[in-house]
Amino acid sequence: METILFELALTFYFAATIVCVLELFKGTRTTSRIMFSLVAAGFVLHTLNIVARYFISGHMPTANMHEASSFFSWCIVLLFFFLEYRYKVGLLGSFIMPVVFIMMLTSSMLPRRIEQLSPVLQSSWLMIHTVLAFVGDAAFAMAFGAGVMYLMQEHYVKSKHLGGLFRRLPSLQILDEINYKLITIGFPFLTLAIITGAIWAENALGRFWRWDPKEVWSLITWFIYALVLHVRLTLGWRGKRAAILSILGFCVVLFTFFGVNLLLKGYHSF
């Protein structure tokens, strides 16, 4: 049952992604309305899937890679809706839905078994730690999307070739503002995720910090975003530089999320 929900959600996200990409070439009010309905439908099914897994397993469904990337995508879509509501940014979907779809596709190819958590890990820290981590990561993903859009728009304005997406992309100021806001949201979440992770590790495993690769890379991510915020406030690294940094930052986030599991071994099962 929950698998069907997942497949359906994936299908809707896929359709939405196609519409999003088409929208880059020829956007009308109708295409964006269709895109929204598709994403919304996918999101509802996706939510049901996550709730179902929660009740079947009895814990937050973020216990393996399949669940984690699914939940990661869910957080991105949630934030996407929020941003659309708040800023009504055209084309944001075209830059973020492909990320969601690829993440969901990856998730769909990973083993979907429902994990039996070892008793040491069974605590409400699981939910607190992972939700914080993924909301933070989702904010970084959106900042990445806004960063890419900024670089495109900046290129149009700077080079004085006002063709392509110039008209439909939002203004530089809005894109920069969104980028900055998202990082100021993502950063405290990441910080809290690291802290709660440490507390959980202390409770369950007896040590706050074990230099597990996931821990190390999370710390690197933390330093990168701390740097992004710091140079912005002190040196005025805004706009283009902030956009580039947030794109780099998200690459590190992705490596921490996928790469560490594939290349390095640690006790984080995802």
Partner: peptide
């Protein structure tokens, strides 16, 4: 259609650009 969308005078073009920089 987008027939009326793009500025066709220099001073309007300037305002349009300013909007794409500052909103």
């Amino acid at each position: 259609t987008r027939i009326a969308e793009n500025a066709v005078s220099i001073s309007f073009a300037a305002v349009e650009l300013a909007r794409k920089i500052f909103t």
